[in-house]
């Protein structure tokens, strides 16, 4: 299954990507649309909580290396450069990621390390535009569909494809979701997803001390801002000159070309900087 085939099917029957995703899942796995919606509804509830919790009360990670930033940012947010929607998305992404690092409850989407991007984009845009729950669930279905294509033709794990496979994929999923949320076409969703991947290609997975904290938490912020700007371009009618399926192919090839040291092993990049090594030593004690 690729974007080009999905677009043909959507165009033929005037389907939204979320409708296609629902029908496809029902056909493949025999789960009724009502059950799928119900499960997504539960995921949305967990997302809402994790996107809010660390903004309201500071949390610390298990290692003690990170925490408190979602709270700090929320205090500052009214003065943010970014405006209400984007600053809210940044705050939500920080919150989900900090909740994850503190052994709180999150929805892996597609992974735990990138769990802040899709919820932050969908919740922030819905909040500022006053969109209902059904639309939010549709957006999550659309995000899932984009992730399915990436999972089939590339990969979604940092250990396999670097951070581009985790935060890059999440960013593409979020970008497509926001386009559908705001009434854009399936084609525009894939344009947005393509742009988001193009802006994430080559991103390495280099976690300090091998933990899902530094730089993962802030990469979720980068991921959601990337997603929102990609969605904005697509909604303006700007096309990606490289189609989505080709960007997935590039992501796959770049992932394979990344050395092991930059694929979640903590043997390169930020993990082996002077500060990274020092932080890793610090938590051993």
């Amino acid at each position: 299954m690729n974007a080009s085939e999905i677009l043909t099917a959507c165009c033929k029957d005037s389907l939204l990507l979320s409708t296609f995703a629902l029908r496809h899942e029902t056909e493949q796995n025999g789960i009724s649309e009502a059950v799928i919606r119900n499960r997504f509804d539960r995921m949305l509830t967990v997302m809402e909580t994790s996107a809010a919790e660390a903004r309201q009360n500071p949390v610390r990670s298990v290692s003690g290396l990170t925490g408190g930033d979602a709270f700090l940012y929320e205090q500052y947010r009214s003065a943010s450069l970014l405006g209400e929607t984007v600053s809210l998305a940044v705050a939500c992404a920080l919150s989900c990621s900090e909740i994850n690092a503190s052994m709180g409850k999150i929805v892996a989407c597609p992974t735990a390390g990138s769990c802040g991007i899709v919820p932050a984009a969908v919740l922030a845009v819905s909040s500022s535009k006053g969109l209902d729950r059904e639309k939010q669930i549709n957006a999550l279905l659309c995000a899932g569909l984009v992730g399915q294509i990436i999972g089939e033709h590339a990969c979604l794990a940092g250990a396999q494809g670097g951070c581009q496979a985790e935060c890059g994929s999440a960013s593409a999923m979020a970008a497509a979701a926001v386009v559908e949320l705001l009434g854009g076409s399936p084609e525009q969703s894939f344009d947005a997803a393509a742009i988001a991947i193009k802006n994430s290609l080559g991103l390495v997975c280099d976690p300090v001390a091998g933990l899902v904290e530094i730089p993962c938490i802030k990469r979720n912020v980068g991921g959601v801002v990337n997603a929102l700007s990609a969605a904005d371009l697509a909604l303006a009618g700007i096309h990606s000159r490289i189609p989505f399926d080709d960007t997935v192919d590039a992501l796959n090839r770049v992932g394979r070309q990344l050395p092991t040291s930059l694929r979640e092993t903590a043997m390169g990049g930020l993990a082996t900087t002077a500060a990274g090594i020092q932080l890793a030593e610090q938590i051993k004690q």
Binding site: Q28, V62, A108, E152
Partner: peptide, 22 residues
């Protein structure tokens, strides 16, 4: 990889920080 299910991409609902380590 074969076509993953929607639920392979979205979810699981889990306690963090790592799907494999936690």
């Amino acid at each position: 990889m074969p076509v993953p299910s929607l639920f392979d991409i979205m979810g699981p609902i889990m306690i963090g920080p790592s799907s494999s380590h936690t």
